[in-house]
């Protein structure tokens, strides 16, 4: 109890600095200890990349940030995750409200089988972000613009979202996340299902979004982490091995494991 208030205290002190603070986070899947003792600070208005070999727990950790793991029965989270100094695992927190603040984009583009317009309008509608149709239209338009998809789809907003190309679908999913007006956007390997050209577009988009949002991205590709992120965290076997400015991690890793991974010894 004592320790917790101490942590909160510290968080309040650093309020201006990190958007997300994680301390001593443990995640269990049934009997498996998937995430061990993770401490990390994620600054606002920047892109933080989680890298590491597959199965290292980076996606699992990402999903604890907006409590997406709640939907899995056997998953259990311990430790503190604070967003703006508030513990997201506090019993008073409604995950629904949390997820409006912390949006998410998934590995595989997953547009709903609805029209492009309805895909983007879905979030604002359920959260009641607009008072009338005009406002909703505005939100949809600006979200699509921010996602860089507007010019491609403005003439066919009524077409099904599933009919777009893979890259367009992923940008539609980003637009859908933006439309809820979140402060943080979590991206779980958003480009792994896309071809290089679509990937480039999405990366460009991430870079632009940084101005207004705190972005956490899980990626397989070290080049991508180097291209889009300001800070990088390296996970290995459920442990956060090293975290720091992206340049430092790639040019001057402290840990042997990070070095091995970056130089391609394993992964």
């Amino acid at each position: 109890m004592n320790q917790m208030t101490e942590v909160e205290q510290k968080a309040v002190e650093m309020l201006n600095e990190p958007k997300i603070v994680a301390r001593n986070v443990q995640v269990y899947y049934g009997d498996t200890h998937a995430i061990k003792d993770v401490d990390v600070d994620i600054p606002a208005q920047s892109v933080t990349a989680f890298i590491g070999p597959s199965g290292c727990g980076k996606s699992t950790f990402l999903r604890t940030l907006n409590r997406m793991n709640d939907t899995i029965d056997i998953c259990r989270v311990e430790g503190d995750i604070l967003i703006d100094g508030e513990d997201v695992y506090d019993p008073k927190v409604d995950p629904v409200q949390l997820r409006a603040k912390v949006g998410m984009v998934f590995q595989k583009p997953n547009p709903f089988p609805k029209s492009i317009y309805d895909n983007v309008a879905y979030g604002p509608r359920i959260h009641g972000l607009s008072r009338n149709k005009t406002e909703l239209d505005e939100i949809v338009t600006s979200s699509l613009q921010k996602a860089g998809l507007w010019d491609e789809v403005k003439d066919r907003l009524d077409a099904p979202g599933t009919g777009l190309s893979g890259g367009q679908q992923q940008r539609l999913c980003i637009a859908r996340a933006i439309a809820v007006n979140p402060e943080i956007i979590l991206m779980d390997e958003p480009c792994s299902a896309l071809d290089p050209i679509a990937t480039a577009k999405v990366e460009e988009l991430i870079d632009e979004l940084r101005e207004n949002y705190t972005i956490v991205i899980v990626t397989h590709s070290m080049q991508q982490a180097a291209r889009v992120s300001q800070r990088t965290a390296f996970f290995h076997l459920g442990v956060l091995v090293e975290e720091g400015p992206t340049e430092d991690i790639f040019t001057n890793p402290h840990d042997k494991r990070t070095q091995d991974y970056i130089t391609g010894r394993f992964g």
Partner: peptide, 13 residues
Amino acid sequence: TIASTDAAATAGP
């Protein structure tokens, strides 16, 4: 795109 961003960012409550 960026210009319209600021307008929309304040749109939602």
